[in-house]
Nucleic acid binder design. Structure first.
Lengths: 209, 209
DNA sequence: CCGGCTGGATAGTACTACTATCCAATCATT
DNA sequence: AATGATTGGATAGTAGTACTATCCAGCCGG
């Protein structure tokens, strides 16, 4: 198909598709002449992926590019699919190394992960996000003990178990990418359900009737 | 204290503090003269709140302003603390009303919430986020049944129960604001733990050793 | 052979969250 | 009283992100 059809079928303007090609999110069409190129279903599929990551997952174009290139790297095995993706999504947080609050938070994160026995790399960006959250909670006057984080960790573990249950040894790269996008989307599901559950719980506890 | 001291103690540049005042996130200091104003601990506290919501919660300045003004409104009771905040954070998603995929997703969300028996308003923005996520999952080729969403919903409910357990009848507005900031921070904790759990689960399932 | 579509390049836009500069007033210090 | 730094308030500028618009030949289908 030509770019106009790709545009129509994906619902994205032609200019945006060109932009994604320029940015390395979408491969070029196969050129048949100087001013002609062919696109196929894989391009459409990729655009759906990009849209899910951008609009739902709220990832930046740069993060999406990192994810795509990471998961297209044949050196990345299935077993570190999520690790590689998490690293590609990155921290977008820079942690000061000298701040004592930060140091303490990092140690608390390390201790929690050790206690849970989770196999995660020391560089996992989510560690930094977690540490940042702990620092913020402290500054807000809350002191989150490891015990308080337990229920969150257990919920997260159960969901991850459920999700990885869908992975098979023979899962293809394309499938893996789709699953990864799905897991990013599920993050939003989790947050949305969390907010709705809060509304419900707070109404239930204090509400009328 | 003067603005320079507030800057020093909060770690934020004076210009940024002025900006937050202009934007209505932070109240003005009490003016003692044309070029002098006094700030106190409540300003410092508010700055910590803003930082937590901005840097950790990744909320926009506009969303933070909406949250603050909503929770300062005496018409908002404790029982809809989280509802009001969720509404203030907003959808930042505009849903097409004519798309059949969207209509189906909305109905699925409504059905799920009804089945769960959650007391949430029909306008809750998280409904839209959820519907958007379901549409994206469909387009990615996954068909999330209500049953598949169950574990997520249950995890979210348990966490919300735990969080609202901290609320008391005599909780002050200032405390409520802090708790709300904490809950936004906890969203990030949840997502970070989710990513770490995925990395662990995927390594455990396919990894070496 | 001609009008509309195309690839490729370049430039411009809208938005967000700051950041910088300027000014006159005022305070602390000399 | 003079002076130098600080302040509130206003205005303007910046950097980054994600597009969006325009332009220009070249080509294809009619």
């Amino acid at each position: 198909m030509r770019i106009s059809e790709l545009s129509e079928r994906s619902g994205l303007p032609v200019q945006t598709i060109k932009f994604y090609i320029r940015e390395g999110l979408l491969p070029k069409g196969t050129a048949s002449a100087a001013t002609r190129a062919e696109y196929d279903e894989t391009h459409l599929e990729r655009l759906r992926l990009i849209r899910a990551l951008r609009e739902v997952g709220d990832l930046s174009v740069a993060a999406i590019r990192r994810i795509i290139t990471a998961l297209e790297d044949p050196g990345v095995g299935l077993h570190d699919l999520f690790g590689a993706a998490a690293y590609a999504i990155g921290p977008r947080v820079d942690a000061p190394d000298d701040d004592p609050d930060w140091r303490a938070a990092r140690e608390q994160v390390d201790a929690l992960l050790e206690e849970l026995g989770w196999r995660v790399t020391g560089q996992a960006p989510a560690r930094t996000v977690l540490a940042q959250a702990l620092v913020a909670l402290r500054r807000l006057g809350f002191t989150p003990s490891p015990a308080a984080l337990r229920p969150y960790a257990e919920a997260a573990a159960a969901l991850a178990e459920h999700e990885t249950g869908l992975l098979r040894e023979d899962t293809t790269r394309a499938q893996a990418l789709r699953m990864l996008a799905a897991s990013v989307v599920y993050d939003q599901v989790l947050v949305a359900l969390h907010r709705l559950a809060q509304e419900d719980a707070s109404a239930r506890r204090f509400g009328p009737g």
